[in-house]
Design a protein around this nucleic acid. Sequence first.
DNA 1: CAAGCCGTTGTTAGCGCTAACAGTCTTCCT
DNA 2: AGGAAGACTGTTAGCGCTAACAACGGCTTG
Lengths: 340, 340
Amino acid sequence: MGPGPRRRPPIMTDVAKVAGVSHQTVSRVLNEHPNVSEETRTQVLRAIDLLGYRRNLVARALVTRNSRRLGVVSFDTTLYGPASTVYGIEQAARNAGYFISIVSLRTIDRARVLDAIGYLTEQGVEGIVVVAPQRSAAEALEDMPAGMPAVAVEGGRTDSVSAVSVDQVEGAVLATRHLLDLRHETVWHVSGPADWLEAEGRVRGWREALTAAGRPVPDLLAGDWSPRSGYRAGQRLAAMTDEVTAVFVANDQMALGVLRALMEQGVSVPGQINIVGFDDIPESEFFSPPLTTVRQDFGAVGRRSIDVLVRQIEMGEPYARERHVVLPRLVLRASTGTVR
Amino acid sequence: MGPGPRRRPPIMTDVAKVAGVSHQTVSRVLNEHPNVSEETRTQVLRAIDLLGYRRNLVARALVTRNSRRLGVVSFDTTLYGPASTVYGIEQAARNAGYFISIVSLRTIDRARVLDAIGYLTEQGVEGIVVVAPQRSAAEALEDMPAGMPAVAVEGGRTDSVSAVSVDQVEGAVLATRHLLDLRHETVWHVSGPADWLEAEGRVRGWREALTAAGRPVPDLLAGDWSPRSGYRAGQRLAAMTDEVTAVFVANDQMALGVLRALMEQGVSVPGQINIVGFDDIPESEFFSPPLTTVRQDFGAVGRRSIDVLVRQIEMGEPYARERHVVLPRLVLRASTGTVR
DNA sequence: CAAGCCGTTGTTAGCGCTAACAGTCTTCCT
DNA sequence: AGGAAGACTGTTAGCGCTAACAACGGCTTG
């Protein structure tokens, strides 16, 4: 049965009593204050160990006004991108000595983002990362409470908070130009949902690259990131093999759907149509055929955003709004390369 | 420029002063205490609005001893399973009025899990969910601090904490029996890493189903959940098409690798070999061919675990250890079905 | 009409901790 | 020898909030 259960966990004063010192000395040991004699420190540590004492960071936070906690507001963390970003954020935060409180929104709009920010503020977080890939979420950042350090990830062009994002336009340019370099006359595009900033950036980059090369810009096929929407787009593309030879798909999941539809219709990739995706999810390398795609370094985005946030917190109020861009890169695989 | 910046955020006493009441009355309004006159309530709410007051839940937590926060310890949340589980946990927790503090471990072992639990305890969480799919993590739960409500997800057979998990054995039995029903003489297996409880459960179910049917149990091919490891297994399987006609792969990502390798070697699925996966990730339906797989309802697991945890918290100390099992189900697609 | 009750509000103490200051005892210098 | 500086420890106040109790007025009741 072991030692009988204790009603309340030990507090600092209990430790002090056992160690024969004042509670303040215990506090000094815990906070590694320089002026504590080696002997006293040992006594205190022994008492802590004996009682199984753990300090109460809630009480500490109340007086120091810092909770060592950061808030994260994110959208659907089952998706690979957000999940990887949040993972990167968590790792970086813990390395910097902070904990993470998370709110995952099922649907995202201004009110819900503001609610989430409000809850986190009440909870006493010292700063907030908003993974805000949709326009509506990005707009909510304008109303961030004054004095709360914050950083937007994939959050568009707000001036009110710092931002870290992958250069979506550049990624789309890389993808499109790669296909043009393979002598395709033009490149079709299966886009993400219109209210997503990432989708918008990819459309823009695709259009820019085509225009810069003096090529016609075909109608875009709208998707919603899901493999199924890619599948539907693929069915339409399969019916147009005389004009379509190259497709830039806005993410790898949709690209999978496109590949599936094309295969069902007997369209050869890369024989008849070349496909480029976006994200480089772990599966892409094993699609049939393996997918040429644009890799986003989500981990870097997470780390960078914590860098910025922690710097703001430690600097105190008057900090500059920063803007960081992480560059994507093209990963070549078998879904592109054969010239018509 | 708007209103000038305030040095410190307003506190309850500020609101009280503006509303012309005591701070305790403000507290009563905030906590929806029944005995506050309608008139006073309105005054207070107006003052709160005017000042943009938000209560300090850290101070509240110090006196009430409940923080309305739960801790989650998880492993690599970029994987679909853990990510979905954590998402389910977060949604359910917020519905129940709790916030989530997360620690994502990169590598998992007894010491690290205990560290994480310790940190969360110091942070004042009221309960902890440990997503502990590896044996080493599950063992750490034996040392959970007394009095801390906790629940293990996929955590094996500890008696010291409550547990919620998917019935892995049953899932593997479903998969294996399905293949046997299709008149395959036996079923091969590509397993997950040996120290994962889920991998172990799936091996066990596969073996049981074969033995129950009086079939030979082939050597298993060891994988590590990654598509690449599946690909390597697939290469080996492709060289054995005279004996291998059916393979149960321990997750969908590896199954993708297997499919890829088989396709490269010109082995037809389901023509020559039938494949069943596990998880039902969103991509599986669009693999080539679409994958028959065992669906785990991760959302349900997350919700159930919060149910259990919240009940323990609200019940107070002497609560029973519960054990909940979520049943998986077989999803039939084109990767199985053609008899040799 | 006194006694009692109830709805409403205010006052006080204290959650567990750290900051700020105040001691005490050494040590070192002029 | 006297005093200043430094190392170490203790005492007190207070972070922002809620619990517990006290106080007050209006109402009912015998």
